[in-house]
Amino acid sequence: MEELVNIFVRSIFIDNLVLAYFLGMCSYLAVSRTVKTSIGLGFAVIFVLGITVPINYLIENYLLGRGSLSWLGPGFAEVDLSFLTFIMFIAVIASMVQLVEMIIEKFSPTLHNSLGIFLPLIAVNCAILGSSLFMQERNYANLAEVASFGLGSGVGFFLAIAGIAAIREKIRYSNVLPPLRGLGIAFIITGLMSIAFMSFMGIEL
């Protein structure tokens, strides 16, 4: 249990997807003009990460990795399909996003309306594929740990995008140098936020 909380907090603050690894930067910069839409995108990312990362973990362990097909019989024990990882993960993500969209549309039209256009956009968000690949690289012990890593990464993305949207709403009233307006200042603010988040780095959990 303690380990799960550790992984969760670590992936929110220390290994923050946006501020430490620059994943999901495209949608992070494109959608962060107002707080409301960025919160919508943040929730959609938490949702999709919480689902796809555990599914990809199962696929990795029971289909693709070396020896993971041994449950089919002794003849399959040596099969190593790990070169198919990328194509498998991206297919899972694209289809899960589609599935999640249909389920939400069916059961909660209000949520679907508020997430709206963001759900299909997420399929090509690097944060999603990136955390699946990190999950593969970091060798988590079991499904619960993977799930808490996925959720934590989502919450980290949520925090970062909500933060920058709030700052960008305020900065509209400031007198920024003309060539820096828009994209330039957004980058520099993100850099400063990232410095702030680095202060969590020394924490040993």
Binding site: F22, L23, M25, A30
Partner: peptide, 8 residues
């Protein structure tokens, strides 16, 4: 503003 994602 494309492709800033993973790369930095």
């Amino acid at each position: 503003v494309l492709g800033i994602c993973s790369i930095l």
